[in-house]
Every structure is written in structure tokens, then in C-alpha cells.
């Protein structure tokens, strides 16, 4: 047998069908090598908490695109007709201003008195976008309509504590803080 290959009995050990005590003495060293291999298996759990909102955001983005593509067809047809009729192309066509994505930001902040959102979409003004507390609980939410593109943001707790979103990608803001990144 090629010494690179495990002995069939050692393979049975690796498969969990026998224990090392079941191996004949001459195979024990090889058996221990096999068990060292299994001991190196990394079974650390992996958690991907951001996947849920990433999936749902991807589906929502696509739905917006589909919706706009459906609107675009009659709009362009109308535009073409009007161009032919009044020769004023600037008067028609879909408005880019309506092409936005609705995003709900959520924060659970026990003990917080005030929570707001600061980001590229409100000139980083921590007073511009307050979150609303849900009942008497610790849940704070804000729903924004944002244009497609990349936005950076952070939560601001009690006016002083800037908290990035741990479930979103983040970038260094150049001043020692991390900004969360939302791509729509």
C-alpha cells in the first residue's frame, strides 16, 4: 500500500466506525495521525446576521427597478408621441426625483432618551432625522425615502454617542469613527 494512503482500518477510524483501541498495534501511530487531522477541523459556528436585510433590500431594489421599467415604457411612448406632436422634448419624460427606495432604520437602545440618524443624506445633521420611540419600549425607528446610490450613516444616541450599524458594512470616516454604508 502507498504510504500516502490511509490503511482501510484507519479510514474506518476516521469515519467513526471504530475507535483507536480497535486498531491493531502496528496501526496505532497512523491512527493517531488520523485523529490529529480530525482534531484540526474547525467547527466554529458562523453567523451572518446582515444577510436577512441584505436579501430583502436586494429584492426590494429589484422590485423598484421592475416597477420603473414598466412605467418607463408608456412614459417613453408618450414622450415620443409628444415630441412628434409639439416638438418639445424637454416637456416630457419620467422624473428621476420619484425613483427612491424606502428604507426603515431600526435601533434598540435601552435607556436612551433620544435617538437620531445622521448621514450623507441629511448633511450629517444629528438633529435633522430623529427616530421615533415605539410605545414605551426601547425600539426606535425612522423610515426614509432615499435615492439609489451609496449612503453613509450612523445612529446618534442622546445627542453625543455615535453608533455605527454592526450589521452593515462600514468605512473609516477619516476622524477615527466608523460610518455604516448602505448601498441602494
Amino acid at each position: 500500500m502507498n504510504e500516502r494512503e490511509f490503511h482501510p482500518e484507519v479510514r474506518r477510524l476516521l469515519d467513526g466506525e471504530i475507535t483507536i483501541a480497535d486498531l491493531p498495534l502496528e496501526l496505532r501511530v497512523e491512527g493517531e495521525e488520523a485523529l490529529r487531522l480530525l482534531a484540526a477541523v474547525d467547527r466554529t459556528p458562523v453567523s451572518l446576521p446582515a444577510v436577512t436585510w441584505r436579501v430583502m433590500a436586494a429584492l426590494e431594489r429589484r422590485r423598484q427597478r421592475v416597477r420603473w421599467s414598466w412605467l418607463l415604457v408608456p412614459a417613453l411612448a408618450m414622450a415620443a408621441a409628444l415630441v412628434l406632436w409639439i416638438v418639445r422634448p424637454s416637456a416630457v419624460g419620467p422624473s428621476a426625483a420619484g425613483n427612491v427606495v424606502t428604507v426603515r432604520f431600526v435601533l434598540v437602545a435601552p435607556g436612551a432618551q433620544h435617538v437620531s440618524l445622521a448621514g450623507t443624506f441629511n448633511h450629517w445633521d444629528p438633529r435633522a432625522t430623529p427616530l421615533v420611540r415605539s410605545g414605551a419600549g426601547d425600539l426606535w425607528t425612522a423610515t426614509l425615502s432615499l435615492p439609489p446610490g451609496q449612503h453613509q450613516y450612523a445612529f446618534v444616541v442622546d445627542g453625543t454617542r455615535w453608533v455605527p450599524d454592526p450589521t452593515a458594512p462600514a468605512v473609516d470616516d477619516g476622524f477615527g469613527r466608523r460610518n455604516s454604508v448602505l448601498t441602494l
Binding site: T52, M56, F105, V108, T141, T143, D165
Partner: peptide, 12 residues
Amino acid sequence: MLFSGGGGYWLR
């Protein structure tokens, strides 16, 4: 401790 999420889908 704070838990947060953008997009609003994961906290449910």
C-alpha cells in the same frame, strides 16, 4: 448595549 439595523427587515 445597543443593537441596530438598517433596512428594518432583520429585527422581527
